[in-house]
Write a protein that binds this DNA or RNA. Structure first.
Length: 807
DNA sequence: GAGCACTGC
């Protein structure tokens, strides 16, 4: 039995197929390729040739494909000669309406549109609806429009269209979907259809459909005061009831990000509170008979819609107690034949390369090859091997072009996958998980899956958490997701470098993020919302240990007055998009007079990359170049020095440009020459701007820095306020011992302090590989620790008692 | 003297 059948039969118990198609599966085709034997399809609806032709147009309006969306926007941009779709397009309202009307004909062909009646009815009749939408069914673009135009007649809305929010796990889809739906609706982005993501917002008073990232909505839930013009009744013990929205859609819920889970739990609560409020409001109106007068401030119930890929909907059904079947909407995907390795593979890099060459040499059919690897190291090895093999191909035969793809690659290298390959060349892309969900690569017909990924693991310790990046086997769900990448444009093949038996023993789903990450930020938000993290309704409980660890961190940071109440310091910490320790550092900088420098340092840390590029090939040149930036106090001050030079050059280049004097120097060029990571620093600028704005909005100043780089003590003292758990002091033998724990830690070789002997160190993170390595390290004076509350008070009992006392 | 999955506010 194929896994598809397993999957589908599981679904048939719990879902209604709204397209009215038979749920029985077509017979599977059989074929033999190389050492693979078993053949499976991961798609129920194999599209026959007639259907195949008729879907050619549909592909252009395929909704989940962000690359398609982008390219369709780009086309539009070039037609109108305008690079910003948010600005007015060349044509006026009339031409937009025309375009919308033309697109409407295409939208009607989407599976989602065809099932709209059942979908609408289910949503109207239930407070929570779960929709399982296959790739390409159009759910993310069509559902909000459908609700906006068809929900008016229901009694709740009294002639007004409902206000809708739809969340996405990632920024790019939120923006792309808003752009797409704006075009379909015949409006400009920010009018009827808008979006809000970090650093960017396009919404107005008229916006009826708002796409946003999950994090944005989570922040909104925790910040009742932030909403301008909302009455006091809109919040409930610190929880924003989101009264300005009628319907909230959680899209891509199957991804189970930390925010997916916290949103589901919190929104369920909001939904219940609003239901109670509607009831008591009704009683009040019935009592005094003045209901009509108060119509303006009338509270409405909240409708929730959970949309996910076709995975097990049982968890969501149980969690929301819908008592209803989930709606299943068929998609527009092509058939993918899946084959497993007959024997276990011992060298997956070599096996993957060999399989690439077999496909390249044997297959008649067209299409590029996508290989999934766990990490960059394996990718570079595989790319080297493939390029060597590629050189052995005869000049007459079709060639291969091999490209690596992972997040740490510079943008120019990443962009190569979107350019057409050379003539008579098959492209081979060797990628990490980035190609599983974050990036859609065009032209792929073959997937080779090693079955591995890398994942960060947290080891919670009272003395501070330890991180480990581990190579792990993937889940069955992830294997199907990878398989699906071969069937986006035509029928495809997926070769799994693991046996069918290994597959059957893989976990069915990934462990949700909430069960494997640091919860301190989320727990602080929950408490601020008046919720008890130990009693919060979780889809999957993160466990008492993880919650207790978060409590302990927060207590140490003085963010908690009691397990159910946040201190004013804690309230201040929530005002910034930073982890609690980092927020604490920022707040400490207000008193230490070094906010400008601390904002810069925090921006670099949070930019999600290294300051210096580190490639094995040019390590010596890089380390020589690094010398000129080195600050004796450690990595934080060194990063700051690089950032300051970067910013100075940036502003002088901007001045040059305005006076049209070109010096030929570029920011990117400077970064290259100095082995500095442009992507990291550029991202840091964005974060810096946002933090500066928030500091001012919260009545503080960042410009009045009183410190200079020769005396970094105010900066170090500020860092210590957030990182006191991450400190160690030197021992007689030159090793470092934790101050809050008993581990012996080493300074990571990437640190400027690596071979220095300093009395005490603080660090951003502790990782375990061949030893416990402290990364991003600075030195400080040990006696400063007495200024830190938990060290000042006798022992470390404060943090522990709050963490443990209420378990 | 070492190995760096991916997001997001």
């Amino acid at each position: 039995m194929s896994s598809t059948q397993t999957n589908s039969s599981a679904l048939s118990d719990t879902s209604i197929n709204v397209n009215g198609e038979s749920s029985s599966l077509p017979p599977k085709s059989q074929s033999k390729v190389s050492n693979f034997l078993e053949v499976e399809s991961d798609q129920d609806d194999i599209i026959d040739s007639e259907e195949f032709n008729s879907t050619q147009n549909r592909k252009r309006v395929k909704t989940n494909d962000i690359v398609n969306l982008e390219s369709s926007n780009k086309k539009r941009k070039s037609i109108n000669g305008n690079n910003d779709p948010s600005k007015k397009l060349g044509g006026g309202a009339e031409s937009r309406q025309k375009e919308a009307l033309r697109l409407f004909e295409k939208r009607k062909e989407l599976p989602f549109y065809q099932g709209r009646k059942e979908i609408l009815e289910e949503i109207m009749n239930n407070e929570t609806t779960i929709i399982l939408g296959e790739t390409g069914c159009g759910k993310s673009t069509q559902l909000p429009q459908l609700l906006r135009s068809n929900f008016i007649s229901t009694s709740n809305y009294k002639g007004k269209s409902p206000k809708i929010v739809i969340t996405q796990p990632r920024r790019l889809p939120a923006i792309s979907l808003a752009n797409r739906v704006a075009i379909e609706s015949g409006c400009l982005v920010g009018e009827e259809v808008g979006y809000s993501v970090r650093f960017e917002e396009m919404v107005s008073r008229d916006t009826g459909i708002r796409y946003c990232t999950e994090g944005v909505l989570m922040r909104e839930l925790a910040n009742p005061a932030q909403n301008i013009g909302t009455s006091s009744s809109s919040s409930h013990q610190g929880l924003n009831l989101l009264l300005k929205y009628d319907i909230i859609i959680i899209d891509e819920a199957h991804e189970r990000t930390l925010n997916t889970d916290f949103l589901c739990g919190t929104l369920k609560k909001v939904q219940n509170i609003r239901k109670e409020m509607v009831k008591s409001q009704q009683k009040q109106f019935d009592g005094n008979g003045k209901g009509k007068e108060k119509k303006g401030s009338e509270i409405k119930e909240l409708k929730l819609i959970i949309m996910s890929a076709t995975l097990d909907p049982g968890k969501f059904q149980k969690f929301f107690a819908t008592g209803r079947e989930a709606l299943l909407v068929k998609g527009r995907m092509y058939d993918v034949s899946t084959q497993h390795s007959l024997n276990p593979v011992d060298d997956f890099i070599e096996a993957a390369a060999r399989q690439v060459m077999i496909i390249h040499n044997n297959q008649q059919s067209e299409g590029d090859i996508l290989v999934f690897m766990p990490g960059s190291d394996e990718i570079e090895n595989c790319v080297d091997l493939l390029r060597r093999l590629g050189k052995q191909l005869s000049d007459k035969s079709k060639q291969i072009q091999v490209l690596p793809l992972y997040a740490a690659l510079p943008p120019t290298a990443q962009a190569k996958i979107f350019t057409p390959p050379p003539e008579k060349t098959r492209r081979v892309i060797v990628a990490t998980n980035i190609a599983e969900t974050s990036m859609t690569i065009p032209g792929v017909s073959f997937v080779i899956d090693t079955g591995f990924k890398k994942e960060k693991e947290y080891i919670f310790r009272q003395s501070g958490s330890i991180e480990q990046l581990k190579k792990k086997g993937i889940s069955q769900a992830a294997a199907w997701q990878r398989t699906g990448r071969a069937g986006r444009e035509r029928n495809g093949f997926c070769y799994r470098l693991f046996t069918k038996e290994i597959f059957s023993k893989m976990p069915e789903f990934d462990i949700p993020e909430i069960q494997r990450c640091n919860l301190s930020s989320a727990v602080l938000q929950l408490i601020a919302m008046g919720q008890n993290p130990f009693e919060f309704e979780y889809i999957d409980n993160p466990g008492r240990d993880a919650i207790a660890a978060a409590f302990q961190t927060l207590a140490g940071l003085q963010a908690l007055e009691s397990p159910t109440k946040v201190t004013s310091l804690g309230v201040d910490m929530l005002k910034y998009p930073l982890d609690p320790p980092h927020a604490r550092i920022l707040i400490a900088s207000f008193e230490n007079g070094c906010t400008s420098e601390i904002i810069d340092i925090l921006s670099i840390i949070n930019a999600g990359g290294t300051v210096f590029v580190d490639r094995p090939n040019d390590r010596e040149e890089a380390s020589n170049s690094k010398m000129k930036f080195i600050h004796r106090d450690g990595d934080h001050m060194t990063s700051l020095a690089v950032f300051k030079d970067f910013l100075t050059l940036k502003s002088s280049l901007a001045k040059e440009r305005s006076s049209s004097k070109g010096s030929g120097v570029s920011l990117v060029g400077w970064c290259k020459d100095n082995y500095v990571n442009f992507k990291t620093l550029n991202q840091a600028i964005k974060i810096r701007d946002q933090l500066r704005e928030l500091v001012i909005r919260n009545g503080k100043q960042w410009e009045t820095s009183t410190c200079n780089t020769s005396d970094s003590s105010p900066i170090m003292k500020s860092l210590l306020h957030g990182l006191f758990m991450n400190t160690a002091v030197i021992q007689a033998d030159g090793s470092y011992k934790q101050t809050t724990g008993s581990l012996t830690v080493k300074i990571h070789p990437s640190s400027v302090l690596m071979s220095k002997k300093v009395p005490a160190i603080l660090y951003d993170e502790l990782t375990i590989t061949s030893a416990f390595y402290a990364r991003n390290v600075s030195t400080f004076e040990q006696h400063w620790l007495t200024e830190i509350p938990i060290f000042a008070k006798a022992g470390k009992s404060v943090a522990v008692s709050v963490g443990k006392g209420h378990l």
